[in-house]
Design a protein around this nucleic acid. Structure first.
Lengths: 335, 335
DNA sequence: AACCCGTATGCAAACCTTTTCAATGCTGCC
DNA sequence: GGCAGCATTGAAAAGGTTTGCATACGGGTT
């Protein structure tokens, strides 16, 4: 169906090699020939077959993005950043999701590795040696992850989290809860240890609850734990959880920020619409994706880590501390 | 780097053809040979090169999804549905976005068409003949669109919209505004004409405003128009717009649903968190993606349309009608 | 006038796989 | 015992492209 280089060559009265050059190395051809070839190609609707090309060049012109879950609102902006940058470099992008199953992640990654020049691994749960195996096949860059010998692009929540803790301290909170994300999450690990350090430094007490899945529903159950703990403020692993907390709190008639302050992370949803508008640590997701592809483009020769800082966006879900006593048990949850 | 079929053949002491069969048509081989080949392949870490395979079979094992904007929360679930189904069928998926530029859409689609067995075109803005050109190269299925001779999968907002209008009628609203999505949107077109028909039938008056881009920001400006029009209720093209409306109304101190009722469409965001929780017509996005891939899998022989119904989810943003008079001009908008 | 060199193009191999066709060896049957 | 037929495997072509090498031509140099 699709025209081949040979048909174009025939129509233009040249050899296939010439047609190839007209597209690949235009300056090797006389202007006249090139014009004729291009015209013929146009007429036949010809464009080079990437698979065939890849076969001889060893380059596929594709990159792959592997992420846990596209429905997690953190990722669409990352994907957007990546696809935009890839398109600009004339790369096609494969997308696959792991559905949070590490076994599946390896299978999918292996499959992809053979079809792409570069692989973007987001929040991977693969072991070091598994990633190394992939890296032997194609360029690999990690997003929100860290592996020996591999370049990575991460969001540095440090500054934003520091702001958040300081913000809470200023408001008079002496302790807060951190709602942990998935136990295997590198981001969560970093965030948690950073939070501990900073809380220590500022003389606050932090208690970690969880791990929870990064979801709205998990937030609603986490809310009960927070109430039981008696903390006057809570920082959630991501906005979805924070929104869930808000929802449950509202349901229980607990005033936010009057009785409890809530802080989210990422600022990816229109969280300004939450009740109340959510204070959150913004993450530069789109930049992450863009940067990851750029690393791939650069050949990923120098192993280095790029980090992009997030910052605190203060809205209405944080306020002055109020002394509360823990609730023995939460109100009944809806069926 | 990667092992080829030839090296495996050598190691196993057989011909390349045999190795190929060991993977593709295992039952043609004696158990002994197959075992030897598989063992050799294992040792070399060999797996077939898809590009080379595609070159000869004409099948790539890939499908492509083309959509306007991955950051539009309508699409991630669609993509999820599609990738899940594709993975189950051992297909890899290309993802590309058009960024709402029809010229770009054609280029990208052409590029993709050569690398895939099937193409999922979401809310395409391509002309009939352009899509036909693509369909000549590979199977094509439309999501939320309609073209002659092509299968499509759509969300049928009819029932949900009918519920919405009836809901408004019951609440005593005698007129409402519809905030139109992009002028080129097939979904919008359908929704609008359906709304007009039903409003007519039920004796309501509907005024269409816009077109607006399907975004939060567009919603905030649309809100002013609604106020000026004096409508007591408004149905927005999607949830993002509806959220924008809510936000602007809140900013102006207009009570929802006390003074104005607001209905969204899609139910893709955690819109329950909006202030107030948004009444919306739910769309079964994930099913859309799944069904689209299934059509592709089925060979798309019979041209037919599958539609999935949405339904109204009543929350807190709709309430009894109140007579309002149009405001001459809106309050100043924030810088 | 002979020679050299650069420019523009063609030839053919190579990339890796699948598949058609043919060859081999063996089974079972007459 | 000979032959048909099957099961198993190999040889080779094909698929579309890029690229190293060779060729042809024209112009400038000595």
């Amino acid at each position: 169906m699709a025209a081949t280089i040979i048909e174009v060559a025939k129509l233009a009265g040249v050899s296939p090699a010439t047609v190839s050059r007209a597209f690949g190395k235009p300056d090797l051809l006389s202007e006249r020939t090139r014009g004729a070839v291009l015209a013929a190609a146009e007429r036949l609707g010809y464009t080079p077959n990437r698979a065939a090309k890849g076969l001889v060049t060893g380059k596929t012109g594709n990159i792959g993005i592997l992420l846990p879950d596209i429905v997690n609102p953190f990722y669409p902006p990352v994907v957007k950043g990546a696809t935009d940058r890839a398109a600009a470099a004339d790369l096609s992008v494969f997308l696959a999701t792991t559905e949070l199953d590490p076994r599946r992640e390896l299978t999918v990654a292996r499959e992809m590795a053979k079809q792409v020049d570069g692989l973007v691994l987001c929040a991977t749960e693969l072991r070091d040696d598994e990633v190394a195996e992939l890296a032997a096949q194609c360029a690999v860059v990690l997003v929100n992850g860290e592996k020996p010998q591999l370049p990575s692009v991460v969001v540095d929540t440090g500054p934003g989290m520091l702001e958040a803790v300081e913000h809470l301290a200023e408001l008079g909170h002496s302790r807060f809860d951190y709602l942990s994300g998935p136990a295997t999450s590198w981001s969560n690990e970093r965030r948690m240890s950073f939070l501990r350090r900073q809380a220590d430094r500022l003389g606050l007490r932090v208690e970690v609850r969880g791990p929870f899945s990064p979801s709205y529903d998990a937030g609603t159950v986490a809310a009960d734990e927070v109430l039981a703990s008696g903390a006057s403020a809570v920082i959630a692993f991501d906005d979805q959880m924070a929104l869930g907390v808000l929802s449950r709190l509202h349901e229980l008639g607990i005033d936010v920020p009057g009785q409890v302050s809530v802080i989210g992370c990422d600022d990816v949803l229109p969280v300004g619409m939450a009740r109340p508008a959510l204070t959150t640590v913004k993450a530069p997701c789109a930049r992450l994706g863009r940067a990851a592809v750029e690393v791939l483009l650069g050949g990923a020769t120098e192993v280095r880590q790029q980090s992009y800082q997030g910052n605190l966006v203060i809205r209405d879900s944080t306020g002055p501390a109020v002394r509360r006593r823990p609730r023995g048990h939460a109100a009944p949850r809806p069926a």
